[in-house]
Computed example of a mutant assay.
Amino acid sequence: MPTFDEILGDRPIMAILRGVPPAEAVTLAEAVWDTGIGAVEVPIQTPEALDALAAVARAGAARGEVVGAGTVIAPEQVALAKAAGAVYTVAPGLDLDVLRTSVAAGLPHLPGVGSASEVQQAMRAGCRWLKAFPAGSLGASWLRDIRGPFPDALLVATGGVTAANAAEFRSAGARCLGIGNALTRPGGLAEIMAALT
């Protein structure tokens, strides 16, 4: 089973391809991979999204890239994600049943956290990489503050991250930025890249 140190360790961006048709999702994923600084997640809220995940996973495998399944909020979604080619799972919240099911399937899991209690519970369950969600509502100062009592937490700021606030989240301690709409719209990837340089 790969680790998030390997998947995200030196990549400051996780592109979230929510609601993107398969062919477009592959094009966007390849553009992200071409930058050398991005990982890719495809949320699987609909059957069509599973098709997009499968297409992106096939494209990734051809390039030696791995793809994650996002919005995994029920244990039964883990098998669907794995069958579509996902190598890791991501959730908006902390569900220990989803975490256990994912790890048992050989897929590392990135749980969402939005409070000190959730960070503590996730870390006790063995997670060092955590999705700070919704980051736009929590604010960059939340990331900075939460790292005080939890200095070993590796935070992926997700939800409301844009080119305008990306640098602020990074300076507050986000190891990676989960970016959806701000990246998938025309010109979005270039704007994010410019904000991080």
Rank of each mutant, 00 (worst) to 15 (best):
P2W: 09
D5W: 03
D10A: 15
M14F: 08
I16Y: 06
I16R: 09
A23P: 01
A25Y: 12
V26A: 02
T27K: 14
T27G: 02
T27F: 00
V32F: 04
V32K: 00
T35F: 09
T35E: 01
G38I: 12
G38R: 12
E41W: 06
P43G: 00
Q45T: 13
P47L: 13
P47G: 09
E48G: 14
A59R: 03
E65W: 06
G70V: 06
V72A: 12
I73P: 07
I73C: 14
A83P: 04
V90C: 13
L94H: 13
L96H: 14
L96T: 03
L99T: 09
L99K: 01
T101E: 15
T101N: 03
A104D: 13
P108W: 00
P111E: 05
A125P: 10
R128H: 11
A132R: 11
G136N: 03
R144E: 13
T158M: 01
T158Q: 01
G160F: 08
N165C: 11
A166Y: 15
F169H: 04
A172R: 15
G173K: 15
C176H: 08
C176N: 06
L177V: 08
I179W: 13
G180I: 07
L183F: 15
R185T: 12
G187T: 07
L189A: 05
